[in-house]
Structures are given as structure tokens and as C-alpha cells.
């Protein structure tokens, strides 16, 4: 059978397509343009910049020199080490704290649930600066510091929390542990509410103990939420900046310099924008690799 396409029909077909979908593409165009101008273009130009000695009036191409300099820089490796220690120390503990709090809140009645959800979410609303100011008062190295005063009651001498290499990074970690878990709690509570009650009833009939129900039903069914919190938690802690900037400025002796803070210093204190771009790309690459590995290791296709 032969078919011949009529040119008239084709043109009216594309006209109809435009009439039907033209507006949709126009609406999509706005966010796409914003993304191109304010995200993709800066990322691409930063990538180019990482191979340049950046100057406002004409940069010079220096190939891989920025990357070579970075690899040979002890401070860079120290910042990686600090960032990794910070991430390993904070993310699992934070997830555990979040989970335990959510589990406790989940058992409560409606009004108590609302109270604790709101209270624990408050720090997420407060700015990082405010929280850092509070923690500066807690870590105050003199006798009047809240933490030192508490230790004094136990007969322990005051500690210069943020001023010595041995305790500075730990202090930032402690502050992170006791920081905001509100968003994670809300996510966990939503997931816990989504587990059908009949599963627990079936487990009751199936002779499951309280621990078995937790380990074999609750925890596996909350795995997607845990994975999400793990991935976003690691990304956030790889980029930790505000607390370092406001409380220690990376010191003492680079003991709290993280990659994000190093990038800031390189760019805005030493004006080495090319080197800072190279460091940024290494950070981005690290985050991508770690995220992919996590998804491979923990991803689950649990059906609710």
C-alpha cells in the first residue's frame, strides 16, 4: 500500500502542535533560561577558569597548573581530612538522633506530636548566624562559658574549646550533633505514618517480638528515607562553611579548615579564582562519587 504525505497536512499538523503545546514550551522556557544563565553558564565558566590564571582583565591559560598546585598543597589535604572526619562523625550520629527522636514523637498523641515537631523544627528556621552566636557563648573559653561552667561544677578545668587544635573540630561536630534535626524528623514521621498498621498486626500474629518488628519491618521500610537523609546529609556536611567561618575561621593551625572554607579563602581572601575553581570541581566530583556509591550500596526499591 502506498501512502503519500500531503505537505498541506504536515504544515497544518505542526501548526496544530504549536497551538496545542506552544504555551507549555513558553512556560518551560522561563525556568530553563534562568538555569542556563545563572547555573549552567557559571559552572561552565568556572570549569574553564580552573585551567586559567584568573585576572579580571584577561586571564591566562595555564593548563593543569591549578590542579597540580592543589595536589601539592598540604592545607588542601588537611581540609579534605577535616571534611571527611566531620562528615563521618556527624552524618550517622545525626541520622541516629533524628530517627530516635522521630520514633519517640511517633508514639505520642496528636497535640504532643505537633508541639515537638514545631519545637524541634525551630532551629531550621533560625539563621546559621544566630545559632553560631549562641554556640560561641556556650564554647566561651573563660569560666563564664556555659559549657566550662557546667564542667566546673564537675570539678573539670576550663577548656579552650575553639582555640586549640585538639578540641576545635570536635566542638564544631558537637554543635552539629545538637543542631537542627527538624526536617529529618518530619520526613521520618511521614514515613512511619505511611507504614500500614496491618503489617504490625500481621507481625503480632506472626510471633514477632518488639525488636523483630523494629528490625525486620520498621527499619527496612524506612530505608528510602534513611538513604535520602544520608545522601543529603553527606552533601551538606561536605559543604560545611557557615559554622567554620563564624566560629573558627578554619583555625587554629587549619584544624577546622574544610574544603568549602578553603575555597572561600582561596577565592575571596587570596583572590586565586582559578585555584578556587579547581578546588570546587574536586569537591563537586567527590560529592558525585560518594553519592553514586551510596545509591549503589544502599538503594532499595521498597514498595509501601
Amino acid at each position: 500500500m502506498q501512502t503519500t504525505a500531503s505537505p498541506k497536512r504536515t504544515s497544518s499538523g505542526s501548526g496544530r502542535f504549536l497551538r496545542e503545546y506552544g504555551w507549555a514550551y513558553l512556560f518551560i522556557l522561563a525556568p530553563v533560561l534562568l538555569f542556563l544563565v545563572f547555573t549552567l553558564y557559571p559552572v561552565a565558566s568556572a570549569f574553564v577558569m580552573s585551567f586559567q590564571q584568573y585576572q579580571v582583565m584577561g586571564s591566562t591559560w595555564i593548563g593543569l597548573d591549578n590542579y597540580k598546585h592543589m595536589i601539592g598543597d598540604d592545607v588542601f589535604w588537611k581540609s579534605i581530612r577535616n571534611t571527611v572526619i566531620f562528615t563521618i562523625a556527624t552524618v550517622p550520629v545525626n541520622i541516629l538522633i533524628t530517627f530516635v527522636l522521630a520514633y519517640l514523637i511517633f508514639q505520642m498523641k496528636n497535640k504532643a506530636q505537633t508541639f515537638f515537631k514545631a519545637t524541634l523544627y525551630l532551629p531550621a528556621v533560625a539563621s546559621g548566624v544566630t545559632i553560631s552566636v549562641v554556640w560561641l557563648a556556650i564554647f566561651d573559653p573563660t569560666d563564664s562559658g556555659l559549657l566550662n561552667r557546667f564542667l566546673g561544677l564537675l570539678g573539670i578545668d576550663p577548656v579552650i574549646w575553639l582555640g586549640q587544635s585538639g578540641t576545635a573540630l570536635f566542638s564544631l561536630i558537637l554543635m552539629n550533633w545538637l543542631g537542627s534535626h527538624g526536617a529529618g524528623i518530619i520526613l521520618y514521621l511521614a514515613s512511619m505514618g505511611g507504614v500500614p498498621k496491618s503489617l504490625y498486626e500481621a507481625a503480632d500474629i506472626d510471633h514477632a517480638s518488639g525488636w523483630t518488628k523494629f528490625a525486620r519491618i520498621t527499619w527496612p521500610l524506612l530505608k528510602p528515607t534513611t538513604l535520602y537523609l544520608l545522601v543529603t546529609g553527606i552533601i551538606t556536611s561536605f559543604q560545611v562553611f557557615i559554622s567554620v567561618y563564624l566560629m573558627t575561621q578554619g583555625g587554629p593551625n587549619f584544624a577546622t579548615t574544610t574544603i568549602a572554607y578553603l575555597i572561600y579563602q582561596t577565592a575571596f581572601q587570596f583572590y586565586e579564582f582559578g585555584l578556587a575553581s579547581a578546588q570546587s570541581f574536586v569537591l563537586a566530583l567527590l560529592i558525585v562519587i560518594v553519592s553514586v556509591l551510596q545509591f549503589k550500596a544502599f538503594s532499595s526499591d521498597v514498595e509501601y
Partner: peptide, 17 residues
């Protein structure tokens, strides 16, 4: 668990994972 019964639920209550 001590009543020696088994139950089939309306939504089956199969453990999805």
C-alpha cells in the same frame, strides 16, 4: 501470638520488602 490463630487481612498485609 499466643492464641494460635492465623489471619488474612483485607489489604493482605504482606511485608513489601
Amino acid at each position: 501470638k499466643d492464641r494460635d490463630i492465623a489471619m488474612v487481612f483485607q489489604d493482605y498485609a504482606l511485608y513489601p520488602h
